[in-house]
Amino acid sequence: MNIIVCIKRVADTSEAEIVIQRGGQGLEEEDFAWGINEWDNFAVEAAVQLKEQHGGVVTAMTLGGEDDEEVLRRALAMGCDEAVHLCDEAFAGADAWGIAKALAAAVRGRSYDLLLCGAVSGDAGGGQVGGFLAGLLDLPLVALATCLEVGSGNGGTGGVARVRHEVESGLERVVEVDLPAVVTVQTGINEPRYVSIRGIRKVAGAEVQVLDGAALGLQAAELGSAGARVRLEELFLPPRGEGAEVLEGSDEEIVQRLVEMLHQRGGL
């Protein structure tokens, strides 16, 4: 059971003030804390758990700048066996399509039964990369997995996985999918293990394979912003409080007005 898990380093903006840079092309990142995308963390855990049950090799893969190696180290500390870093200045400004193309190029020729991705990312949140990969590699796709079990599988020569995944209206479906396949992982599928500082340090010396565009056989026009099919024109802050009447005053006054409003709206 060989698994490739695609991960991404994203910013945690939870406590940070969002400040858009002049020109609207980026955010002030000073206050951001960076780390593995939440969904990807569940995907790594799922991959490592499958390996622990069935044996095999788990390869973590990311596309990004030098700092992004951090999430690969973390994945190694969680139990991934190999790490591949798609790193090239020319990748800057890549859209989801560009990321998927580079990942697909890196995946081709490797032996794997499962390709796991987080279902979406905490930053762009389009949920596209997994589906793009399935399309580019001509593999079956199951999106938003909440449970994942595999029967057999030995490096791309067959076997099936049983995947439970979310569809509409709070329903879930259980499907059987031929391997190799792409599965995108929803949060809550497992309890990701903790990665201690020591755990990270222990893999500090582990080898990370670095591949640039040329190594992937990609042309300059396909890379980064040059190859992006979706271009960013401008970032802006969402219209705040649009429609929302923000109550002000002391807690006492606010709550009193709230009670009146609830009363008028039939909430009491």
Binding site: W97, A119, V120, E166
Partner: peptide
């Protein structure tokens, strides 16, 4: 629609048809 089923189908279609995709 960018629903759960949409997440399951749209990117796959875009890739197979080789079309640019705007999500969500």
């Amino acid at each position: 629609s960018h629903t759960n089923n949409g997440l399951d189908l749209a990117p796959l279609l875009a890739a197979r048809l080789d079309l640019p995709m705007l999500a969500d």
